[in-house]
Design a protein around this nucleic acid. Structure first.
Lengths: 106, 106
DNA sequence: TATATACGCAACTTTTGAGTTGCGCAAATT
DNA sequence: AATTTGCGCAACTCAAAAGTTGCGTATATA
């Protein structure tokens, strides 16, 4: 099952995990304590995040600390770039709508 | 069913729709022609995108042109902002992992 | 060495979401 | 006025994803 980065952040729990470990790396148990959720449920979310490289594991004895992979998150930023000029140039939304409508009347 | 912007973007077809109408407003039929997909299927995606305000309808006779709402897309950009300093400061990922591990040994 | 802890994996149930079919309504065309 | 076209809504099917339970394994602790 190939996971993609957009689907990974679609889930609120996974977004919360990312927000947490962006500050500090955590173990699965530590995450499960933060949310009211079983360890296995969290573990599944970790699997999704790991498969699409948004997080990276670091084994420390019998514990595994998951780190945030900022580099991968940049892919979002790249995707967003295509729309960035839209909100920079469309200073007046209403004008835009009207002019497009007029154009299509032709 | 309350739709959120992250879930809306999770679907590849919906991302394609956004990319298309960011350039020019389109009707549901026009979108269905671009993808090899029934009008009703597209219509459902439109509904999701509309509910979370990523697109805005503009009626023109019996046709409805859907416009991209750049303003709403900025919410995504805002969410991303919390991670932006991560990829700006973490210039060396390996060093980061090692130092965190060492810290946790204590 | 026996026991407890941290974790991943697999099988299962339940929920959600993508797509189809069929319908009704309003605007255009004849 | 009758027909066609563009659209949304509702009921349905089917596949995927969220969460649970149970198990196996490796590391730590007694």
């Amino acid at each position: 099952m190939k996971q993609d980065i957009f689907q990974a952040i679609a889930d609120p729990t996974r977004r919360a995990i990312l927000t947490l470990i962006a500050i500090q790396a955590l173990t699965p148990n530590a995450m499960a304590e933060k949310f009211d959720m079983s360890r296995q449920a969290v573990s599944k979310h970790i699997k999704v995040l790991h498969e699409c490289q948004l997080i990276k594991p670091a084994q420390a004895g019998r514990e595994i600390y998951y780190h945030f992979n900022a580099k991968k998150m940049q892919e979002f930023d790249n995707w967003l770039a295509q729309f960035r000029q839209n909100w920079e140039t469309q200073f007046n939304q209403l004008d835009e709508v009207l002019s497009t409508l007029k154009e299509q009347k032709k």
